[in-house]
Design a protein around this nucleic acid. Structure first.
Lengths: 332, 332
DNA sequence: CTGAAAGCGCTAACAC
DNA sequence: GTGTTAGCGCTTTCAG
């Protein structure tokens, strides 16, 4: 490993001078040149661990999220990465797989890094230990913190779902089913709540409990749920799919039965995953993934910068549409 | 920041003992307990920078790849992450966007980290500077290194493409077009070469140059290319799509013209991206993304472990199929 | 403008 | 088993 001492020796200067050259401090041109030359000759690259240890700050933001497979997070990661980079920060990713144990471990690792801040999509039971909250600023995304009260940035799940379901009613459908996720996940509950309200608004009474199905947010479970709904004595005439995986499953199920829109209405909450052949007529509400990432990063940078106000809850609007507008193709 | 000194003081032991407790060395049970208690009280988390600086090793593997949006890389990342974790390594991701400048920067950052090793999907012009190769083991994935000769793990692009195109001929199609990527990208060229060979094998003469189209590996360009092919005086009766994005574009184009399989044959090289409604009859060759990741990680770990043999080139077979077999739904 | 020197928090000899 | 001590490579006072 080449160190500043090696470079200093070769350039005939002191280590401090080498450090200064690499940190933009004032050094006479000739010496600076000599240092650069020596550094190149030796292929010197500054050791960031030593730098960070000495400086006590890491310029790293940890992102702890369920997984990178979900395009929603993929887009969010990109946004965070770009904005963070502009401010001189790198992003370190850790997947939790929705597993609180992995989450806990990842948070500890992040604190020990030590990272400058953490962006976290908390799992349902996430009780992040004091070591985390006490030492590093945290901003929650997508879901609010079930534990300590910290900054959070979430989509307007209730409002977005309500508006999405309303689109179906407005299009003339009368019996709108809801396929959502597990009850322990905030977003799943909120979206179902939006569905309930839209139904109440339009029909004057709450929805038939039979046409609410909770799944595990997986494609296959949603497909099965769709068949179950269609096999009901009084099947629905439209389905509200509470996230992108569910939408995929629902559409598969409907396609298998030859009941694609407009025969059945479909609203996909959060946009469809990359779709090669999207059947026409599927309505979509777009989750502001990028905005969530940008906002969270901004808030985190404020905290890192010393802002010390009370926790803030930001709720970002969901955009309605009947078309992907290339959104899900983003970056692909 | 809580340090081992704070913990040591509170537990009434020396810093070394604290360190030992956290590193599994032999410490008497009572003392160990006292240390743990003190650490908990203070929310102590070991500072990894100090640890790494002292130990001189980072237990981090850098993955420098075009982007995480492509499911091919997503799957690969997962594989690398899992195997690396088993061996006590973390993975640090950097996207290059196929941009050599970003790549160069990412590699320098990685070297300066310093990471234990690098897994790199090199961009076409990647000339990684001496600072990298000289100091850290590198394994290239997906594409061979255009610069220094290092270990590489790639898919059998020529062979896979050839076999894929052969499936089309075997199914009775006679005029198989090829939509591939830019000429500067090794995989694009190799896959076109496979197409050429299969054509030669079957027809006894090389393919009509008119039905070879180079795109920029984007969905929209591929869709446009498809229209252009269909508008030819003698349009093709089948299309070989050289990667997943291209396949998406081709299928979109064919769907718009009502020419989906079996009216037109289609082979998608590398599997389709998550498809909600995949038209039946599309043939697929599966890129061994997971295998590439695992193999590369294994090879890298060997190098990290001190293996010093000459660079190895591993070529992994491509699997044929007419069905996604859930592969593209992996983890989603 | 430049050099000497003191650590950042941790681990690993080395003594006891 | 345990404490003492000397750095890992870097930045940053503090003198000069």
């Amino acid at each position: 490993m080449v160190t500043i001492y090696d470079v200093a020796k070769r350039a005939g200067v002191s280590p401090a001078t080498v450090s200064r050259v690499f940190n933009g401090a004032n050094v006479s041109p000739e010496r600076a040149q000599a240092v650069r030359q020596a550094a190149d000759d030796l292929s010197f690259v500054p050791n960031r661990n030593a730098m960070r240890l000495r400086r006590g700050s890491s310029q790293i933001i940890a992102m702890v999220i369920p997984g990178i497979e979900n395009p929603f997070f993929t887009v969010m990661i990109r946004a965070v990465e770009e904005l963070a980079r502009e401010h001189g920060y790198s992003v370190m990713l850790r997947s939790t797989n929705e597993n609180p144990v992995l989450e806990r471990e990842s948070l500890r690792v992040a604190v020990g890094e030590p990272v400058a801040g953490i962006i976290l999509a908390p799992t349902r039971e996430s009780v992040f230990d004091p070591a985390v909250v006490r030492q590093v600023p945290v901003v929650c995304v997508d879901r609010r913190s079930p534990g300590p009260h910290v900054d959070s940035v979430v989509a307007d799940n209730v409002g977005g779902a309500r508006a999405g379901v309303q689109m179906l009613f407005d299009a003339g459908y009368r019996r709108v089913a809801c396929v959502t996720g597990p009850q322990e996940i905030e977003t799943a509950v909120d979206r179902a709540e939006g569905w309930r309200r839209a139904t109440l608004d339009t029909l004057g009474h709450g929805p038939d409990p039979q046409i609410l199905v909770e799944t595990d947010f997986s494609v296959t479970a949603a497909e099965a749920a769709t068949y179950a709904l269609l096999d009901l004595p009084t099947p629905p005439d439209a389905i509200f799919a509470a996230n992108n995986r569910i939408a995929a499953g629902v559409i598969r199920g409907l396609a298998a039965r030859g009941l694609l829109p407009p025969r059945m209405g479909v609203v996909a909450f959060g946009g469809l995953p990359l779709v090669v052949l999207r059947p026409r007529g599927i309505m979509v509400t777009h989750l502001p993934a990028r905005e969530i990432g940008l906002t969270a990063t901004r808030m985190l940078l404020e905290r890192i910068g010393g802002f010390d106000g009370p926790p803030r809850d930001v709720v970002l609007p969901v955009v309605l549409g009947d078309d992907d507008s290339g959104l899900t193709l983003e970056g692909f």
